[in-house]
């Protein structure tokens, strides 16, 4: 396999290297890629959509259809991880760890043993639990709301600065994952259950696809936000801008929820019991 790999790599590499001499130079403003379609975006995005961030305008409007499927890709990934690794909750793990709150003694309860849940005197801990996590836990609890706020800002400000649904969604999801890492998976699942993460990820894509279908039923083409002007009560250019915001929020919800959903399944090997 090693020689085969080397041969494949060198054949492809030689070919690519040889052809790279025919490329336009790096940063050449006169290269075909910079002359044909892209000047249209740069020069017209402001008057077409009134969005100064051209990347956002191209992403969510000119090539909005790509982005719909991009969101669908990430949704499929969440669904696929669930489908592949999730195991039924009925399977009780081999052994569980409990800590007696008053004394701090840790108990290991074998499979089949009676679990001291609901008594209030015991706390369930993970096998990989780190004892002195007060500082980490407190810091993360303090930081999480600000990260989430920043995520919302990134989504909302995607029209004017680098950002948008994907970036904001990932930051939002990361905040929840940080919470899960700093405390434990079960507590996070109480705040945001698996069902709600699944429903939200579906809902996010649904907002995007639904906006597209709404435009279609309003008589314009699929994802033609111009049609939203009648509903939103604004002119057609502003409707495009608003349409972009709507779909970007949908993307944000979907990405955040999918990130959390994937984390739930991958970190606990599908058991959703003990996380990282």
């Amino acid at each position: 396999m090693r020689t085969l790999g080397l041969i494949a790599a060198f054949c492809l590499g030689g070919l690519l290297f040889f052809i790279s001499f025919d490329f336009p130079s790096w940063g050449d403003a006169l290269s075909p890629a910079s002359r044909h379609v892209s000047p249209y975006y740069i020069e017209h995005s402001l008057e077409d959509t009134s969005v100064p961030n051209i990347v956002t305008a191209v992403l969510a409007d000119y090539r909005g259809f790509d982005t719909l499927f991009e969101t669908a890709v990430i949704f499929s990934a969440g669904l696929a991880c669930f489908f592949l690794v999730r195991v039924s909750e009925r399977q009780v793990p081999a052994a569980r760890f409990y800590r007696h709150l008053a004394t701090g003694i840790t108990f290991r309860i074998e499979k089949g043993g009676r679990l001291p849940e609901g008594t209030g005197e015991f706390e369930r801990i993970d096998s990989l639990w780190v004892p002195y996590d007060v500082i980490i836990g407190m810091t993360c609890r303090l930081v999480v709301p600000f990260i989430q706020l920043f995520a919302l800002y990134v989504i909302a400000h995607g029209h004017h600065s680098p950002g948008g649904g994907f970036q904001g969604g990932v930051i939002f999801g990361a905040a929840i994952i940080l919470f899960a890492i700093s405390t434990n998976l079960r507590r996070t699942l109480k705040r945001m259950s698996e069902r709600s993460s699944a429903l939200l990820s579906s809902l996010g894509v649904l907002i995007y696809a639904g906006t597209g279908l709404l435009c279609l039923f309003m008589g314009a083409g699929f994802l033609n936000y111009r049609a939203l002007a009648a509903i939103l009560g604004v002119d057609q250019v502003a409707a495009r801008s608003d349409g972009i915001l709507i779909v970007e929020s949908g993307v944000g919800i979907a990405v955040a929820a999918v990130m959390v959903w994937i984390y739930y399944n991958l970190s606990s090997a599908g058991k959703q019991d003990e996380g990282l």
Binding site: Y41, D61, Y62, R63, G64, F65, A220, F222, L223
Partner: peptide, 9 residues
């Protein structure tokens, strides 16, 4: 898609 003519959309 989105009402944009070919090379752009």
């Amino acid at each position: 898609m989105g009402g944009w003519p070919p090379p752009v959309g």
